[in-house]
Design a binder for these strands. Structure first.
Lengths: 333, 333
DNA sequence: ACTGGCAGTCGGTAGAATCAAGTGCCAGTT
DNA sequence: AACTGGCACTTGATTCTACCGACTGCCAGT
């Protein structure tokens, strides 16, 4: 009987009784409903309107009788096409994946990039841009590239830069970022103030790499999902704070959930929302995530299916690219 | 008399007459208003409600009697602090500038990064990530760094990569991207299929560099500015299409405008919006832009002031960093 | 050229009446 | 014991009406 919770909004006993598959009269449905309401799975917004599920009701639905969501074939094809065609770099893929996900569903999508935690330095290069301007380019073992401009007091010749680059590469390859940052100033010598600024830059980079990138897909979907403009505004303004989003998703995942309904994540301002999450794992640890954000009355099977497809495809792609050489083997020498 | 157009919404003759500085009676105001309405500067939504300005009215306002907007001191300080503190890279700065701009006003902000048009290749590097995985890292003269992963059929040793890198650097530094992409396959020799893929990657990069990056700041501001949720949705969904945004802004700038009200930009879906734009010029050509998007009844002086401050500060910063070595001098050798 | 006065127009709001959906309960049936 | 049909009742939505208030247009008067 409760199967009919997941679909729509305020629904009355007569409607349920009329539904094919339910061969009882509205009166019976009614008495069941009072039971469900007593137990907190349903509420009626006001006497004599249909009942709507409570958060608890949705929770029961997703836990016990969610009809293992399946994506429609057109949507499956869309996903397939997308992942067949991805060509660019990871950042690009994640960004576009967030859009994809939002287009597979009527909800807003979020993608949190896996953090580079254990990545090591693979290359360090100094490139002169202008007389007193040098660009520090760092390549990490997971394929991430970071750069930072350095301003110098005295000019440095190309050769000096080349020498320094070589020295840095030799000294730092294989370290993790923090280690590298610590190491640099010691490599000292002639232009040590310059090396100090390299060290600072490396620290900055290390910090930047820690903070995960968040990609927001299809924010306009929020304006479809909620009809109170004020709700839209507040949810949007929360999504603008990327840190909050990351924390939220990670928190939900850490608690072993893939769905957080209403107040289940302890985050007050999103009480009218539900969040569907799926981890993106690269190597053996789950550090990234994809998420969907919609009203509590969302289509959970669909959302779960979409999130899972995208997250697993993403994981696969990322492992193909960078994952398999994590646990030991790392290139040829 | 018309000074009172810019401020609020439906306003009647009595209100205007009461306004300090207007020493005429409501009857006089009324007769002036019929004139203004006849000429198309005002409309009344229905008989006997106040009048509201038409797009033409707003246009007249911004063109002829906009009270040269000045930012409040707290806001000026905010801008100052922001630009004193910027430290990261350009992308970062632009992204955060879009947020800043949206926070200086109650409108959504857009920042379009200056395109790298005439940038030349400054460095090319091949970094091995895994046995058959190589990362191509290209540094451009304007400080942009692009990367692309290449999958190989056969493994290449570090030394071979090093040799290739050196060869590429020597051959390509100073070319623009397209030139470089053309040049590569010719440098041929042993592993020419590999070089071909490098060439393809360079082409991709060249294409990627052409398409300007768009940063959207404070989308939630749209939900404040419009009270019809449907409007919010449609405007948001337009902002999701970055290409449209770029085209729109550029088009407005090309027509020598800094404000486009209602249908002035020929873009139907944004007929209920006004756009305020300011160019960001690096070197001598204006290629970037900042913009504000709000309802036609926006506070134009404020918006203009904010956009101008941010755009000029951005221009300055970007010229400091990369602009001054554009027209000739390019580094030390 | 401006003003005060006055009739007229409408949109918005409050209140009453009506409607329709849905409930709770109960006696009756299987 | 479970289910059903019937019925009185509640209550949010809808519609209608009357009314109020905010304006306007116009005009005669300074």
């Amino acid at each position: 009987m409760t199967e009919y919770v997941g679909t729509a909004t305020p629904v009355g006993s007569a409607y349920v009784a009329r539904t094919p598959g339910v061969n009882v009269s509205s009166a019976t449905v009614r008495s069941d409903m009072v039971a469900l309401e007593r137990d907190g799975y349903l509420v009626q917004p006001h006497t004599s309107a249909g009942r709507i599920p409570t958060d608890k009701g949705y929770r029961f639905f997703v836990d016990h009788l969610a009809p293992a969501g399946i994506l429609g074939t057109p949507q499956r094809q869309r996903v397939k096409r997308f992942f067949d065609r991805v060509h660019g770099e990871m950042e690009d893929m994640l960004e576009r994946a967030s859009t994809l996900l939002s287009e597979l569903t009527p909800y807003a999508a979020v993608v949190v990039s896996p953090s580079h935690g254990s990545a090591t330095v693979r290359s360090v290069q100094l490139v002169s841009l202008a007389p007193r301007l040098v660009l520090l380019v760092v390549v990490l073992s997971d394929g991430a590239v970071e750069k930072r401009t350095l301003e110098l007091d005295e000019g440095l010749s190309e050769e000096e830069l080349g020498r320094l680059s070589t020295r840095l590469v030799q000294g730092l390859v294989g370290c993790d970022l923090d280690g590298a940052a610590e190491l640099v100033p010691d490599a000292g010598g002639a232009s040590s103030t310059f090396l100090e600024s390299v060290g600072r830059a490396l620290h900055e980079i290390a910090r930047a790499e820690e903070s995960d990138q968040v990609y927001l897909g299809g924010p306009s979907r929020l304006a479809e999902a909620f009809d109170a403009v004020e709700t839209v505004r507040s949810v949007l303004s929360i999504l603008e704070q990327q840190l909050v989003v990351v924390t939220l998703l990670r928190d939900v995942l850490d608690r072993g959930l893939s769905v957080a309904i209403g107040t289940e994540h302890g985050f007050e301002p999103l009480a009218s929302c539900a969040v569907v999450v799926a981890p993106v794992s690269v190597g053996d640890n789950e550090t990234g995530a994809v998420g969907l954000l919609g009203p509590t009355r969302m289509n959970y099977p669909q959302a779960l299916a979409a999130a899972h497809v995208v997250s697993s495809e993403l994981s696969e792609r990322m492992n193909d690219a960078f994952g398999h050489h994590r646990g030991g083997d790392r290139g040829g020498h």
